[in-house]
């Protein structure tokens, strides 16, 4: 049964973002875009499960404008078998995305596992996986750092505030990835070439019967208060004196 891996195209994590002067958002023109790093980990995990024959196919899906096809080709080059592109211009928010993904699952009910990033590094919501699990009424394991296949489902170790927690889930289930789940491979040139001929299906939110209109209205985006560089001290002694003067030691 196939694994669904939802991925998002975001500003590359190495780019220093610029807030638009009119406060309407963040500059995305002429900025390097990439697959959300947590989603890349999700693709890698799903591909490893297929390599161990726990699944027969890995299906990557994204919701975004025409150019977002590049992250799907990237996922295909990393080993996904086929891709679905829900073509949509404009902002997406977790509730609309979760509804779209739930509609896809309703259409193709054979999926028994969804692996996705725990958060997108652009809007930092950390919500879509949880919302999708609820809409599907599937159990979930968020912030996964380890996934083990068992006869009766999966065991997932989660990174939580106090340490680690391991849960057993029957499938179908939703898993969201944390950083230490795996280290994604690099796409080889032959695989990049091969990805170009893998099947990529496009559809629209309307065909899926979902409404992606953002629920939250962004009134303003601004720069955070800047912290200015302080001073360099020449010795531990001076440092301790400064900290005493500041009243923190």
């Amino acid at each position: 049964m196939p694994i669904l891996v939802p991925i998002k195209r975001v500003i590359d994590y190495n780019v220093r973002i610029r807030v638009k002067p009119d406060g309407s958002g963040v500059e995305t023109q002429n900025v390097k875009m990439s697959i959300n790093p947590f989603d890349e980990i999700a693709v890698e995990e799903a591909v490893r499960l297929r390599e161990k024959n726990h699944t027969d196919a890995v299906v990557a899906v994204t919701i975004g404008p025409a150019v977002a096809q590049d992250v799907l080709r990237n996922a295909l080059a990393l080993g996904a078998d086929r891709a679905i592109h829900v073509v949509h211009d404009g902002e997406t928010q977790p509730l609309g995305v979760a509804k779209t993904l739930a509609a896809l699952v309703a259409r193709e009910p054979s999926y028994n596992l969804i692996i996705m990033g725990k958060q997108a590094i652009d809007d930092d919501f950390n919500q879509t996986g949880q919302m999708l699990a609820q809409l599907l009424r599937w159990p979930m394991a968020t912030f996964a750092s380890k996934l083990e296949w068992q006869d009766d489902g999966i065991h997932v170790t989660r990174e939580i505030d106090g340490g680690l927690q391991t849960l057993a889930l029957n499938l179908p289930a939703v898993v969201t990835t944390d950083l230490r789940l795996n280290t994604p491979r690099f796409a080889s040139l032959p695989n990049i070439m091969k990805a170009k001929s893998k099947p990529l299906q496009t559809m629209t939110p309307a065909e899926l019967g979902v409404d992606l209109t953002p629920r939250l209205k962004t009134l303003r985006v601004e720069e955070p208060a800047k912290r200015s560089a302080g001073i360099k001290v020449d010795s531990v002694k001076t440092l301790v004196e400064k900290l005493q003067q500041a009243g923190v030691l």
């Binding site: 928010q93 977790p94 509730l95 979760a98 930092d124 919501f125 950390n126 919500q127 879509t128 996986g129 949880q130 919302m131 999708l132 699990a133 609820q134 809409l135 979930m140 968020t142 912030f143 989660r158 990174e159 939580i160 505030d161 953002p214 629920r215 939250l216």
Partner: peptide, 20 residues
């Protein structure tokens, strides 16, 4: 990690977009 898990599920049940 406690609140992030719950807010999303609650939002989906109530058809609300949580603000995290």
């Amino acid at each position: 990690s406690f609140g992030k898990n719950l807010a999303g599920r609650l939002g989906a049940v109530l058809d609300v977009q949580p603000i995290t």
